[in-house]
Design a protein around this nucleic acid. Structure first.
Length: 550
RNA sequence: UGACCUGUGGUGUAACUGGCAACACGUCUGACUCUGGAUCAGAAGAGUCCUGGUUCGAGCCCAGGCAGGUCAACCA
């Protein structure tokens, strides 16, 4: 049993004291963008906590601003949550409560706790003061209840133009908390709403909507990120004055991931400035991007579990995310052989025209995955980087005179190097040892095993090699323009990699491990003539790590 | 110059609510291996932001500092 985080302790205390019989949480996205891994943390918390303690979770779209919100996002958000593996109890919209919220507003007006302010937004901002200096009261602050009621009704009726006035809570213009300085509750917008159409021309602000929606749904634990902490006194003020169900807000520190950015604004910027191909570019930390990259929901959930939750700032090593996906894919990925950068290997003592179909296991971690047969012949491709004419110390692969094993086939020895006029290596001549065929009890020892593919049977495929999008660890904290921080090698396209025949019929959603090269999935842009594979993540590679150090 | 939040190995979280700091990732060894993967075994690495105080005893309590974050949208 894992250690409890602070939210679990709060919930357990509330359950134990009998304050609640069951907990109710909610995930409240604004439908104005795509979900990313930071949202996954929140989703995992809200749904996971309810799950663990036998409660329920609502999905509630926070759609109080018709200017930026669209139905398209509603659909993508629902798809992403389901993909992660969660199902909500109820699907609600803040807009479902517009009428109720309007009543709440009138209730506050009647209590003398809200007023219509005809100051301009500039004037309101000016009178708000600063964090270190108190604000000033609006000249409209002391209108009578009757006057306010009438004006507010006129606002709703469409009597006033946009920006003419707002409804404000009457709290304290001298509060050290800026959010308590008579916050705006309603503003006028002649804008069509994705669900309510044109029935409203006034829309509630976040602060006047979120807490009341929580309350109306009986949310017991309203979990949000730290930046809303300063809103909590206001959240509680509305609930107290309205005398409605006291939902409680608890804050946690949002996720920061190294070598990436997770703010909606910056993600949008990456898309708009063309640094990525779109919201679902496999380098994006969006759920759509991760999915296309080959990340599994299980790995993402495991990641969310491992990072834990606290209230302090954090920068999680993206290496942990990579660990999680490797751990998951190692168990399930089908092994295949693909040579990314082909170097011809000619077996001079192998009969011309002969083809052997050799059995190969599909997944050594999972015997149930069975075996397949792959063709072996006189001319093969091996990886260019698996041969060095003058190998440095520590290089275990092929070199003149050396022997290595070809995976699931034979041990071979490099006899000769074929070069063109300019001295480039264009082929390797080698001999094979028939008695070392895989499965025989040959006792020949070699230092390494290479992946390979039969030249005559090879299927050309395109391979997209993705790396981290940014070259600096914490791009969000950098002063430099985002564009200048992009890793120039975040995408390397291999136009003609050589794959074993089976991959001609690869299917979407199946995870493959290209032996010694990493985990891959088919990209939707594939065509029958040209399969395209995205690299999800490389294999852990001590040799590569060691050689790239200097 | 204000208010609020936060400060534990490189990173992320723990520490039975006062009993000389644990787990994971990463790193480094070694074993094994027909993937330099996986697996297995082991190691190094913090004395808990600082200074005082209370206490037999403090990462946990108190005081004062310091550092980081958040807050001045008719955004959420």
């Amino acid at each position: 049993m894992s250690a409890k985080n602070f939210l679990e302790e709060i919930i357990e205390a509330d359950l134990k004291s009998g304050k609640y019989q069951r907990i109710v949480t909610r995930f409240p996205p604004e439908p104005n963008g795509y979900l990313h891994i930071g949202h996954a943390k929140s989703i995992h918390l809200n749904f996971g906590l309810a799950d663990k303690y036998g409660g329920i979770t609502n999905l509630r779209f926070d759609d109080t601003n018709p200017t930026t919100e669209e139905t398209e996002y509603v659909e993508s958000i629902k798809r992403d949550i389901r993909w992660l593996g969660y199902e909500w109890e109820n699907e609600f919209y803040a807009s479902d409560y517009f009428e109720k919220l309007y009543e709440f507003a009138e209730r506050l007006i009647r209590k003398g706790l809200a007023y219509v302010d005809h100051s301009s937004s500039e004037e309101i901002a000016a009178m708000k003061g600063t964090p270190t200096t108190p604000g000033m009261e609006s000249p409209y602050r002391n209108r009578t209840v009757e006057e306010n009621l009438e004006l507010f009704r006129k606002m709703r009726a469409g009597v006033f133009p946009e920006g003419a006035c707002v409804l404000r809570a009457k709290i304290d213009m001298a509060s050290p908390n800026m959010h308590m300085r008579d916050p705006v509750m309603y503003r006028i917008k002649y804008e069509s709403h994705h669900r309510t159409g044109n029935t409203w021309c006034i829309y509630p602000m976040y602060d006047f909507a979120h807490g009341q929606c929580d309350s109306l749904e009986g949310i017991t634990h309203s979990i949000c990120t730290m930046e809303f902490e300063v809103h909590r006194p206001l959240y509680e003020w509305f609930i107290e004055k309205l005398e409605i169900f006291p939902s409680r807000q608890y804050e946690f520190a949002r996720l920061n991931l190294s070598y990436t950015v997770l703010s909606k604004r910056k993600l949008l910027q990456l898309v708009q400035e063309g640094h990525v191909s779109g919201w679902d570019d496999p380098r994006m930390p969006t759920l759509a991007g991760l999915r296309r990259r080959g990340y599994t929901p299980e790995a993402i959930r495991e990641f969310c579990e491992r990072i834990g939750v606290a209230r302090r700032d954090n920068l999680v090593d993206v290496g942990l995310l990579e660990f999680c996906i490797r751990e998951d894919l190692n168990r399930r990925a089908l092994r295949r052989m693909v040579v990314l950068s082909p170097l011809k290997l000619i077996l001079t003592n192998y009969p011309e025209g002969q083809v052997e179909w050799l059995p190969v296991e599909n997944n050594p971690e999972d015997p149930a995955a069975g075996t397949r047969e792959i063709p072996f012949s006189r001319e093969l491709f091996i990886e260019q980087e698996d041969f060095m004419e003058e190998p440095p110390k520590g290089f275990l692969r092929l070199a003149p005179g050396r022997t290595v094993r070809l995976k699931s086939a034979y041990v071979i020895r490099c006899d000769d190097v074929v070069k063109d006029d300019r001295g480039n290596i264009i082929a390797i001549k080698a001999s094979y040892f028939p008695e070392t065929r895989s499965g025989s009890d040959s006792t020949v020892k070699v230092k390494s095993t290479l992946h390979w593919v039969s030249a005559a049977h090879a299927v050309p495929v395109r391979v997209m090699l993705y790396d981290r999008l940014f070259k600096v660890e914490n791009p969000a904290a950098s002063e430099e323009p985002l564009g200048s921080l992009i890793n120039p090698n975040s995408l390397l396209v291999v136009e003609r990699a050589m794959a074993e025949p089976d991959l001609r019929t690869a299917s979407l959603g199946v995870h493959y491990q290209f032996l010694r090269k990493g985990y891959f999935v088919l990209d939707p842009s594939s065509t029958p003539d040209l399969p395209v594979f995205n690299r999800t993540v490389t294999l852990k590679d001590h040799w590569a790590a060691k050689t790239s150090e200097h």
